[in-house]
Design a protein around this nucleic acid. Structure first.
Lengths: 208, 208
DNA sequence: CCTCTATTTACCCAAACGGGCTATTGAAAT
DNA sequence: ATTTCAATAGCCCGTTTGGGTAAATAGAGG
């Protein structure tokens, strides 16, 4: 029997996963947590072989949690199970030590076979996810090295003003350019930082 | 002749103030800066008696600038001249060492008479501003001590999610409450933090 | 018992934002 | 000479946000 633990804050999804595991022949659900903090505190009492980890958790997120878990229990196999299909989250998860990355819309039987893969030393991920991972190797080495994407001077300038809470039109006034140009720079910035809002961009920026 | 310096990022307003000073009998404008950084660098060459300081400056804001100026030139008289009528900014300004607090809508002749007051040892401020200052002495000491406003647990929880870039509706889903409730908590948070947008709130929050 | 606060929900509305698209200019690189 | 790219500007459109206003409930503290 392979010991599996869950970290998932949505009650319904968590209970579905528990059912799935308990109705299987090969797996046992030895723990189910709703947040990262509890997981980090309690996991050493349960010693699962595999963890199915949600990314979007209240407080410490699944990626950070993965990182912390791997430092204390490096043999633990962690599989991300999440709604995000975004390249950045995938890479950060894998870098944090996850061995697999599944989307939440994956049918139960595929999740189970993925868990089997994992226990056999595989790394399950959907074809779309795999493609994104593969593509990362096609990127010229240059870009991989400084994974901290390079913003142009103008973009940094705008991001800085953004982080001070200025509106588009205030930034435009400040820099004597049009509202639309600010808008355009912001799009490029969001694309480069892999985010979709002011807040996310500013948070990344402030963490330098 | 009383030597006055200006710190104001808006060209039009700054030039209006220069005109006002130059057309007066008692004052000379010895410097006019558009930002705090330049002011801090250059002010020791100009040695004004009084500074009229805007709060909303790009980069270092007027309050921080006031603080820094007072450490190196404690005899300098600084008068805030700003659009903000909010209690928090007023107190922080006065604590930083400002001796007066005027609103930008104050007519020129009143600004001049305020400058006269200042040079005579007075502290000019409008009746509304004065009221807010007075009221601060009526507040129980408790609240004055921890000026770092207290957010409720719920509010912190929501602010935390906000800082992770979640949308209102995502926060609502996360906490199993309605979109409107999230909206309302955010209003309270903004009010307590004296901000007017996600970005500003998150920046304050991340700076702990 | 009454008041105050925290938490919750709701409706309205204007401003701000995010993304899809296209396009011009000038500089730098190939 | 041609291509690439940063910077500029614009239009369209749906979504998100912020603020006004109102109100109900439950718990704490007088």
């Amino acid at each position: 029997m392979i010991r599996v633990a869950l970290v998932e804050d949505d009650d319904k999804i968590r209970n579905n996963l528990i059912d799935m595991l308990e109705n299987s022949h090969d797996f046992r659900c030895v723990a189910a947590y709703s947040n990262a903090e509890e997981t980090l505190r309690d996991i050493s009492n349960k010693l699962p072989d595999i963890i199915l980890m949600d990314i979007n958790l209240p407080g410490i997120d699944g990626i950070e949690c993965t990182q912390k878990l791997k430092t204390t229990m490096p043999e633990l196999l962690i599989v991300m199970l999440t709604v995000y299909e975004d390249a950045n989250k995938i890479f950060r998860s894998l870098q944090a030590g996850a061995v697999g990355y599944l989307l939440k819309l994956t049918p139960n039987h595929e999740i189970l076979s993925a868990l089997n893969d994992v226990s056999k030393g595989g790394s399950p991920m959907s074809a779309q996810i795999a493609r994104k991972v593969i593509q990362s190797f096609h990127q010229p080495q240059k870009e991989k090295e400084n994974s901290k994407v390079r913003l142009t001077n103008r973009e940094e300038e705008i991001l800085d003003l953004l982080s001070k809470g200025f509106l588009y039109k205030e930034i435009a006034a400040e820099l004597s350019i049009s509202h639309d140009t600010v808008h355009n720079h912001l799009r490029k910035i969001y694309e480069k930082l892999q985010v979709h809002s002011r807040t996310e961009a500013v948070v990344k920026y402030l963490k330098e």
